[in-house]
Every structure is written in C-alpha cells, then in structure tokens.
Amino acid sequence: MIEIKNIKKSFENRPILKDVTTLFEKGKTNLIIGQSGSGKTVLLKSIVRLIEVDEGEILFDGRDIRKMNFNDLKKLRQEMGMVFQGGALFDSLTVAENVRFPMDMFTSMSAGEKNKHVDFCLDRVNIKGAHHLNPSEISGGMRKRVAIARAIALNPKYLFCDEPNSGLDPVTSILIDNLIKEITVEFDITTLINTHDMNSVMEIGDNILFISNGENGWEGNNTQVLFTRNKKLNEFIFASPLSKRIRDLRQREDDE
C-alpha cells in the first residue's frame, strides 16, 4: 500500500503537481491516467523519489520515503521494480544480462539458477531467441517487454510501470496487461501504472486516478469510469469518434 498526501511539485515556478492525494492499494492494479504532459511521469518519479517533491508525504506501508537517509532508501528501493517510459535498458549489456543484472547484484543464486530464472522471466513477456542481442538490436516494443521482465525479476513488493504498453500491438498489449495483473494478484504487490490506453483502463483498472490540472481530477474503478458525469474525464476517455458515438447512444438510451 502506498499513500500519498498533498504532493506538490513545480519546475522553475511552473506548477506541475498542485495537490495530489490518494491511496494505492495492495494486490490491485492502480492506474494513473491523464493527458500527455499532465504530470503522470513526474508523479511516478516523485513517488519513488527520483524527483524530490516540494511538499507532501509519501508513505510506503507507513514508511515515509522523503524522510529516509541514503541507506534506508537503498533498502526500500530493493523492494521496487520500475519500467521506465523509454525502457532504460543498459545498452552495454545483452537482453539476458539486463534481466540477470538485479539477480547478480542482490542475490546469491548460482549461475544455473539465474539463467533458468532469466528464461522464465523473458518467457513471461513472450520474448524468445533474443537473449544474446543488444538493446539496440531489438524493436521498441521488445525493449519495453525486456524492461518489464527485468522489473519483475526479483518479485518486487512495489511495481511501477510508466506506459508499459505504449508502442505495443493490441495482442501483446493485452498480454502485458494480463501479466501485470497476474503478478499483482499472485504476489499481492502494490502496482502503479501510468497509461493512456483505454483498453488497459477497461481491462485492469481496479483503481483509477485521473490527473487533471495537477490535481486529482477523478477517482474510481473501471465500471464507474464508464458512467461518470465528470466533464473533463468524459472528454478524455471518449476522445475517439467511435467511443463518442457509443456515449451518445448510451445517453439517448438514458433519456428515453
């Protein structure tokens, strides 16, 4: 469980997060949605303290990450996994070495065990036969999936995904959504996902936080989101012509 209270962050007097307060539950997939540039990445990085916020509290199961010293922070971070928006694979290492890296660093597994686990993780994200390639030799979507494999390699307690399925085809996208959902439930972890993908919102949106104007625009789950009367959220989720038509039909039915 991660609790954030009154988070504020400005860059050079330009406020990006004005006041965000929410609770991300354990064993649930918590989605953060919002327009491009609304501050989703800034919020996610603030929570893990890669960005220092100006004000607010960030509690990881009661532990305030902002008050931690360097060593406590390092320990807490060993319980986290993160998929960055651009993948952030180590480009001096191969795909397999990238996934093995956290195991090399923090476990005393034998070489055989590590290799088996690498295969297992890469298999889960549907990557086959790319073990010995460099990150520059695989596609953008594959890089994203390898990053997911690396993030889940050590069974984190907190999983952060910044747009895990942008740049993926619909089939792989659903596979990744389901994988994240599965891991979240199976290991009972707290998962935060930034996304613009409406499919993900509908499929795995246990808790949804809509960021608008740097504040909580709306909160709810994937059933509630369809029937919301929140104007901004409606504009956001029914942005495409197809979904607009569905909404209009629904409204006509309501009126009748």
Binding site: A88, L89, F101
Partner: peptide, 17 residues
C-alpha cells in the same frame, strides 16, 4: 548518455549506488 536515457535512474531504483 546513461543519464539522459534514464539508465542511471534505473540503477538507483534497483537500489544500486
């Protein structure tokens, strides 16, 4: 280039100095 492609953030996030 490791800094601008977030590889350093990625190391930090794993708990590596």
């Amino acid at each position: 280039s490791m800094r601008v492609t977030e590889q350093i953030d990625s190391l930090e996030l794993m708990g590596v100095n």
